[in-house]
Design a protein around this nucleic acid. Structure first.
Ligand SMILES: [Mn+2]
Ligand SMILES: [Mn+2]
Ligand SMILES: [Zn+2]
Ligand SMILES: [Zn+2]
Lengths: 147, 147
DNA sequence: TCCTGTTTGATAGTTATTATCCACTGATAA
DNA sequence: TTATCAGTGGATAATAACTATCAAACAGGA
């Protein structure tokens, strides 16, 4: 959530070229609190930038994400993963290899009820992320994704 | 995590036909603790059931999910959603319309460190799910998904 | 065993995302 | 200011995960 000057400085510091498109995507996203999709951003932006391409929005979001300027709300996992344990429990997800380990901890089951006006909460899930034992040990042999 | 007899009874109770494929998918998933994808289950199952189709695995997982017998580990969201707020915060996700609201609550930022052997945790996120104010009010006009 | 609504398997279609490719541009140096 | 050029953007093809379609086979009750 940075203003235009902070953005310019950050790009300069990180030696990443700051283009009109990158600034536009970041400022549009900054102005919204509805956690838009790439497509939704594209639809808003194309009015002011008719030549903008959807692929550019995707590439820009990825760049901004790598720079630590935007976050992805849901897990970046492309594939759904299933579990025969339907009882309440939580997960540790390895960002390098995709391994998912179970966490059974009653302290995570009872979290403070959030105060989101009018929202009727039916449950919650906690995702810890980091490196699994194997990937933490491995120097750089990143698999990125396992089936 | 039910045995064969419990599964038979549950299908009978819910009046859902129990096929060989449904039993096979459920038992394969029950026997694994690696949170497999549909494709991974299919790869394991096709050895014993060479005529099994991947589409059937998808349909079966959906059926089992609706019956409350399997859980999806990650959000079923098809589209990635982005956020310019990279500071630690959490989210309430409406299961009816896809709306995502921010939750700022320091009590959710400091959760008990989970004891997953060897796992190097770098962060966590909490997803509450339920119905947003609008959808909780609306009788049944479910939008299912908004862009 | 027979009957009928459901499910399966094969496959085509869809959707979100990524890769490719080349003209163009932002950042630096002259 | 202009020249240079690595990196970027736009157009579009390709990919990956999933979903729809539909005829044939099946499950479960009569
Ligand atoms: Mn689990
Ligand atoms: Mn947020
Ligand atoms: Zn790992
Ligand atoms: Zn809603």
């Amino acid at each position: 959530m940075k203003n235009r000057e902070e953005v310019r400085t950050l790009f300069k510091t990180k030696k990443v070229p700051l283009t009109h498109q990158r600034l536009a995507v970041y400022e549009e996203l900054s102005g919204r609190r509805d956690h838009p999709s790439a497509e939704a951003l594209y639809e808003s932006l194309r009015k002011a930038y008719p030549s903008l391409s959807l692929a550019t929005v995707y590439k820009t979001l990825q760049t901004l994400h790598e720079m630590g300027m935007v976050a992805r709300v849901d897990s970046p996992a492309a594939q759904a993963r299933y579990d025969a344990i339907v009882e309440t429990h939580h997960h540790a997800v390895c960002t390098a290899c995709g391994r998912i380990e179970d966490l059974f901890d009653p302290r995570l089951d009872a979290l403070p009820e959030p105060k989101a006006a009018g929202f009727v909460i039916s449950g919650h899930s906690v995702h810890f992320h980091g490196l699994c034992a194997k990937c933490a040990k491995a120097p750089s042999t990143r698999t990125i994704k396992e089936k």
